[in-house]
Design a protein around this nucleic acid. Structure first.
Lengths: 240, 240
DNA sequence: CGAGTCGTTGATTCTTTTCAAAGCCCGTGG
DNA sequence: CCACGGGCTTTGAAAAGAATCAACGACTCG
């Protein structure tokens, strides 16, 4: 499906300094450990863990994508984040996981013992700082999503979502005008706090406005990035 | 208005071990530093900083309350968190603040040089871990709010908000059945992603159902905590 | 006491949801 | 190779919840 690669950050680092130079910079005792850590393969739709499960591992995504979500007792679901290659899953939270994690596509992860990681972080400020930064990124993302879900219209939300994926591509040296969506409409809906119907209608609206093209339902071509960006930012007068 | 006290955590610690014992446990080199740090007083509605401002300080609230918010270019505002006594403001984010911070009531804070804090954290794993935990709490809160804003109805959102304040009281050994709201309806609206009118109508609904009483608009008495809790959890059949 | 801010309530409008049905894509099996 | 079946997506019509627009009331501060 999606041609996922290893974390581009790590790859770039290795390319620049060679595999040995990595230990020279922050948090890379951890990277070494990660590469040695037990790998795990998850099929699409397979759960990594559920909310409330005992937290024995922290994970880092190597390939694929995982959605992190919370649910209400009656089944309403809010996806709070998508984890892509390089991202950590399960940082911060205490003894138990405070959200569920489910693979969206075939996914490969590295598993790190939570207690061991805690031990390492407690003694190695570099590792601690690295985790701190990762957590800080997740906080930023969560608050950003909060702004999106709380204040933007349906079409703006979808635009913001697509722009985020486009920018992600850019950072990873992938064509930002071609976006592959590994997740279903239901996943997008639960991420943006909409229904699948509204997500679908918003896609149609963007397509009819000439802002995007839909090749298949999971493959988007960005035709007018500037307008998409303005829509996402909430700067565009809404149009039919 | 609100009879705010110093961080109950710190107070409890001091009460249990005396002021000198504090250094024995995690992150308290920081606590010492904090008590020595420059205090700052903010009037209600006064801004601490704006999104995009250079981040030279991290703050800890001593008294009062601060709202942290993000805005869209056209003025739509999303409050992403309220900071109460003991809470840190400005953790994580990079060189620039990524949200604005405005005092809700008369507020007293301690200011810590961001670079100094960074320096300390880099060498002291205990401090680093303490900040890590604080950040982790904020991430949890943000995702929780995301679930609230994304999936709950207007009345459920308000119920969740009131329950959170009630539980906060409980943790601080304050009567959980009496809730003082230091913020305006507009603040609550921007926090819960509703309009002031809808917030007001939801208060009325809760009052008419006998779940709460409104003494003044900023003083709530919880009459039926169980129902409030069920509503907040999304377990209650919606009622008029 | 008057001005102004903040909060409540009512009527109407609008966006999104809900309910319903049809279309499309893909894998399976004849 | 093509027909069949099931899941996912799209589209349409009706309904619901919250927003908007408008006015009034309450409390606060000069």
């Amino acid at each position: 499906m999606l041609t996922m690669t290893l974390s581009p950050d790590l790859e770039a680092k290795e390319a620049a300094f060679g595999p040995d130079a990595i230990d020279a910079d922050g948090g890379c005792a951890l990277n070494k450990r990660l590469r040695a850590a037990a790998p795990r393969l998850l099929q699409a739709r397979e759960h990594l863990f559920f909310e409330g499960d005992h937290k024995d591992c922290i994970y880092q995504v190597e390939r694929g994508a995982v959605c992190l979500y919370k649910t209400l007792p009656d089944g309403r679901r809010q996806i709070v984040d998508f984890a892509y290659p390089g991202d950590f899953i399960g940082l911060g939270s205490p003894e138990e996981h405070v959200f569920s994690a489910q693979a969206i596509t075939l996914t490969r992860l590295r598993c790190l013992s939570a207690s061991l990681l805690d031990e390492v972080a407690r003694h190695d400020p570099q590792v601690c700082m690295m985790l701190y930064r990762a957590l800080s990124d997740q906080l930023f993302a969560a608050r950003d999503l909060l702004l999106t879900v709380g204040q933007r219209s349906a079409t703006e939300r979808l635009a913001a979502f697509l722009m985020a994926l486009s920018r992600r591509n850019e950072r990873n040296f992938v064509d930002p005008m071609r976006i592959v969506l590994p997740m279903t409409r239901a996943d997008i809906a639960d991420f943006l706090s909409l229904t699948i119907e509204t997500v679908s209608r918003s896609f149609t609206k963007l397509r009819q406005s000439g802002i995007i093209d839909l090749m298949q339902s999971s493959f988007v071509i960005v035709r007018n990035r500037q307008t998409l960006e303005q829509l996402a930012a909430g700067e565009a007068r809404e149009f039919k």
